[in-house]
């Protein structure tokens, strides 16, 4: 029996950026991009599911993000996660990886005991691969990044294969451990139709509040208890719930700042067009030889 925590992120689909997403000033209009489940995080969840399939236990999925990020928590429930936790607060906005890892590590600490933390190697919007290791450092546990394959889980020991430059290594690690997984590690399973039916009504506190709009706070509480009783409540944690230090959250807690953003411009300008004829190519080769570009 193992308790796994899986860290997931909802990201803008940067692989499908089209014309109207890029604005004239070179910035990205995030609202024009579809929000998707970060691909490597889905692989991380699959890893956790396989451990649960084999040894039993529990899977808690956590995401930090805006209220709409509960979409991917529902998707995790459809795949087989036991519960979702939405960590959301306006005061988290503008967080860099250091501030994000602070919030995540405190949320994990509040969960009590765990054996594994799984995360994708990196998210496709920032590609930094920093949040996993930074969260891990704050928890004071070992990490295995770029994990390719879990070879053996036995008692309190994990043996796993990870990618290294020009090859791989096999490591043996004492639990608890945080692992970040690469995209090809395992194929994430599809949603279970039965679970989709069971959990499509799962709601976070913000979503319940929205449902109850215009009604008394008492009604929100009542609704919340109903959802909890039906196991359809997505636990929701704010800065106050986690008793966080405001100076370490969001913009205030982020040492790195975006100073300038430019769209990628083509250098060019002094380009010379060459005729695809023997004469044209002959002149090109002459020039390259003169310039000692070709020998």
């Amino acid at each position: 029996m193992y308790h796994s925590i899986v860290l997931v992120k909802q990201v803008p689909d940067t692989a499908n950026i089209t014309g109207n997403v890029m604005q004239d000033d070179g910035t990205v209009n995030r609202s024009k991009l579809p929000a998707i489940f970060n691909p490597e995080d889905r692989v991380a969840l699959e890893m956790a599911l396989r451990i649960k399939d084999q040894f039993g236990g529990k899977i808690t999925v956590m995401t930090m993000g805006p209220p709409r990020a509960s979409d991917i928590l529902r998707e995790c429930l459809y795949m087989g996660a036991d519960e979702g936790v939405l960590i959301s607060d306006r005061k988290f906005a503008g967080a860099d990886t250091l501030a994000t890892s602070y919030v995540l590590s405190e949320a994990i600490r509040k969960e009590g005991s765990y054996d594994f933390i799984f995360a994708g190697r990196q998210a496709i919007d920032g590609d930094t691969a920093q949040v996993g290791p930074q969260t891990c450092e704050k928890l004071g546990i070992p990490q295995i990044t770029y994990l390719e394959e879990i070879q053996k889980v036995e008692g309190k020991t994990l043996t796993a294969k990870r990618k290294i430059e020009g090859g791989y290594e096999v490591v043996r690690c004492t639990l608890p451990v945080l692992v970040t997984v690469i995209k090809d590690a395992v194929e994430p399973r599809p949603f279970s139709a039965k679970r989709v039916m069971a959990f499509k009504g799962a709601k976070s506190l913000m979503e319940i509040e929205k449902m109850a709009e215009g009604n008394s706070l008492l009604y929100v509480d009542q609704l919340r208890h109903e959802f909890e009783a039906r196991q359809l409540f997505i636990r929701t944690l704010t800065m106050d719930d986690l008793k966080l230090d405001a100076d370490r959250c969001g913009v205030h807690g982020s040492p790195t700042k975006v100073y300038k953003v430019e769209s990628v411009v083509l250098a060019g300008g002094d380009r010379e067009m060459i005729e695809p004829t023997k004469t044209g190519l002959g002149k090109l080769v002459d020039k390259l030889m003169e310039d000692h570009i070709l020998g």
Binding site: T14, A15, I17, I124, G126, K260, V264
Partner: peptide, 10 residues
């Protein structure tokens, strides 16, 4: 950043 579509100065 953003899949190589922009260049950010941090």
């Amino acid at each position: 950043a953003f899949g190589g579509n922009i260049i950010a100065t941090i």
